[in-house]
Design a protein around this nucleic acid. Sequence first.
DNA 1: AAGGTTTTTTTTTCAAACCTAAAAGAAAAC
DNA 2: GTTTTCTTTTAGGTTTGAAAAAAAAACCTT
Lengths: 217, 217
Amino acid sequence: MTFSEENYLKSIYHLTAAADSEVSTNAIAEMMETKASSVTDMLKKLSEKDLVNYKKYQGVSLTENGKLAAKMIVRKHRLWEVFLVEKLNFSWDEVHDIAEQLEHIKSEQLINRLDDFLGNPTEDPHGDPIPDANGRIVKIEKQLLSELNEGQIGVCVGVKDTSSEFLKYLDKQGIALGSKIEFLSRESFDLSVKIKVDERELSISNKIASNLFVKLV
Amino acid sequence: MTFSEENYLKSIYHLTAAADSEVSTNAIAEMMETKASSVTDMLKKLSEKDLVNYKKYQGVSLTENGKLAAKMIVRKHRLWEVFLVEKLNFSWDEVHDIAEQLEHIKSEQLINRLDDFLGNPTEDPHGDPIPDANGRIVKIEKQLLSELNEGQIGVCVGVKDTSSEFLKYLDKQGIALGSKIEFLSRESFDLSVKIKVDERELSISNKIASNLFVKLV
DNA sequence: AAGGTTTTTTTTTCAAACCTAAAAGAAAAC
DNA sequence: GTTTTCTTTTAGGTTTGAAAAAAAAACCTT
């Protein structure tokens, strides 16, 4: 499997993960920053390898094979991220590009031993779940901070946007995985939200609140 | 830099490392298992990037740039090998292929942090020296077991052949880095050598003895 | 059925790596 | 010092992988 094939699989996986529905050629093209015609080419290739269910004009979905392959790539990506953060002291905003390379290393043994070495973590540094060697994923109960009601209290368990800019912003505000966040009030004018993080009161925009996952306590 | 370019650099480095001389197109072709004409193509490319000194029909050598680049690849390869053996419990005969992939990951920060994480090792699991971040190499005093005289005693500090077959043979015979080896006698008929390894007497062929590095004690 | 959108097909392009065959150069043998 | 042999380069072509522009086809909505 080439890097490109793996990247397509990964994109299709992420696009269909939420809804488990079909995804359009255009949607893939947009995510991969390429042209729809290129996507069609690749879909044919992936279809021949029985990695996607592809019917012309109907969108695509992953086959069981494809889903498993995609999960293994995600598994590798997230395990390497844990390694980079836990063992090599990278911060959570620095690991994506390196993991993007490491996820293509081919060795099942390597990744399973890495998994054990890291203590079989179930989540990566951004709170995303890590599929196990069989592709099983333990989902955690979580919701967006923006969906809380006034007075509710949660613990930060993940981020939706994993861009370096967003993560650095969170660092600056002292918000990290595990932070206790109390939803104080919502400003109806701009939908910004007042929260209390570890005894400090903060006001954050709706955009920020819509990219933070919390678990109610 | 492409994978292929990196692999050529590495090959030229290994071919010239011992003698620090020029290396022929054919020698590279043989090592890379390709045709001489393909090598010529690549040499032109590398020459344009100022990585090799290339004059037609005269053989090639690495420029300072090229030498540094090659050393950085070797550095990565050997550091990853240490990681695989020390942290992930691979044995020394299993690590080559995986390290061959990992050596192409591009991130200086990654490799320097890995270096620190591993405690800045100076040798890989086969006893080969690991260049530091500046390309400096600490050579160790060593000689082939086959060059010893009767009665001399050494400690195994490396292997010349790093093939899986050879390494497995050594495992079977209980010979590892650090083993104390006494040169007992040489059989003139087939040049085989009687040795004593940690109290056990063994007879090994000249081929074996010519692939084991020892340091006199 | 028309018009607009999306998707696919077809044809090109591009780049990297490699190959074969033939020519050129260097080295060795005579 | 010529001839032969070996090595290396050149020239031209193939393969593979990825991508794209333009045109055609299919689909959707009204």
